[in-house]
Amino acid sequence: MDDDAPLLRIQKVSKWYGSHQVLCDVSLDLARREVLVILGPSGSGKSTLLRAIAQLVEIDSGSIFLEGEMLGFRDEGRRKLPAHRIDAQRRETGMVFQSFNLFAHLTALENITLAPRRVLKQTRGEAEATAIQLLERVGLREKAGSYPNQLSGGQQQRVAIARAMAMNPKVLLFDEPTSALDPETIREVLDIMVDLAHRGVTMIVVTHETSFAREVAHRVAFMEHGRILEVAPARAFFDSPNHPRSAAFLGQIL
């Protein structure tokens, strides 16, 4: 696999919920170490696109390739992969949710070590050493033994990021990671994400935080009604959006 090939390739992906089409022929390439921010009004299909990449929803047509390997299906004939192959593919795509979704019955440390131990078969010692490092990186070393309901929203989200990073995914997907947070804790989560971006973590971020997009995004995609209307380098997108709909959207949120 040469280094110039896209890490993630999304080709003409469509998804229907009943008669409502939430993704319409979406195509997108993502380079290694790239940070892509997806903007768009709610209901535009941003979250569904992330969930399709994470294989939390099954797409109805099109294909998604991660490092050249088709996700979820054996071939273009749409024969599904067996469950254990799909589980293995899901390890490679990390996800951070709007509602954090930490495991409620486990401590911060256990949340981070569970999958490395059970899925990657690391020893407890290995998994905990990595987890402690990650907790340190998100500034929560002293919260290792706390349960999620003892942590603030911002702290829970930082643990959730550490949990996703512990699997060392090839791409990290953020689904409105700060939308459920109090304004004063948004920054602590964004700071962690900026740090990850500077470390070269490949990320797709669905967010309304344009400051984050301006600060670290390489490119910005604008979605509406299940379509990507514009993809542009971040600076160009914010300075002079091409599509009238993106311009109108920016006008509303800025």
Partner: peptide
């Protein structure tokens, strides 16, 4: 049990049985 707990585990590559 909140379905989102299930989804979070899914994205970490855990099997249905796990």
């Amino acid at each position: 049990v909140d379905a989102r707990q299930f989804e979070a585990a899914r994205t970490l590559g855990m099997s249905s049985w796990q």
